[in-house]
Amino acid sequence: MNPVALAFAAFVTAVIGTIGGLGGAILLVPVLVLSGMEAKYAAPLGLVSVAAGSLAAAPHQLAARLVNHRIGVATEIVASSAALIGALVSGLIGQSVLAVLLGVVALVAAFAGARRKGVRNLPDSSLSVADVGETPGTLAGVYPLGDGFVPYRANRLPLGLLGMGMAGLISGLSGVGGGWVKTPTASEVMHVPVKVAAATSTFTVGVTAAVGLLVYESQGRIVVSDAALVAAAGLIGGTVGVRLQHLLPPPLVRRGLSVILAVIGVLLIVRR
């Protein structure tokens, strides 16, 4: 792929990945493979894009207090452990079976997001800007929405952890980031507001990508000049994406996420 096209693809996927908390690798890797790049070189570039998008989004998301680190850390333990197990057993499952599995998961997540109407978590007029952020010792918090402040709490933790474990497992099996499963799991299963879910997922996919990049670096699979170009474009894309995420209303983010997941699901099943 020529450098301009590579940079453009990395920029666009980082923008979309950051807005939806998807991570971007699930979008960038298929594009690179379709353009003729070998999957073993495309996967590390996908993770570079994820890590760059995560770093670019971090300062803005921290300032806006959108990330719930306690939810992120609690769920990432399960996701990372499952990713390790998935990586260890990845040779036992056929790529075709895996593609169908990923496709079905993407379509289910798309359906879950699309069928819900309205906003689940509503502003509370008794809250002020001083309440915004995480509530220590709990998986709850308050986030700003327009002129109001919305309280939330992560519900159905066992089921949510199961979903995060599945996200980690398929991430370990397939080599793509799990953000596209983590965000719908946090939003639709745990009832975390989609913007908080996306911001928290953007934080955790950065953690997952760090481990993946370490592995790829040790295997000599990272083409440094391409990775640097993807990182530069991903950093710009992540910066643009996080600003758009701040401006867009939650239902629009959720519907957009559903459309992207549906496209990913169909592509995975058709191209298996």
């Binding site: 300062p59 921290l62 300032a63 952020g133 990775a227 640097a228 530069a232 950093l235």
Partner: peptide, 25 residues
């Protein structure tokens, strides 16, 4: 949580990473 300081550190990391990325590319 002192997220202001962490945010500032990550902002610096962002600029430094971007500079290195441009150099690498």
């Amino acid at each position: 949580n002192d997220f202001k300081l962490l945010g500032r550190i990550l902002q610096i990391a962002l600029f430094v990473t971007f500079a290195f990325a441009l150099g690498g590319a």
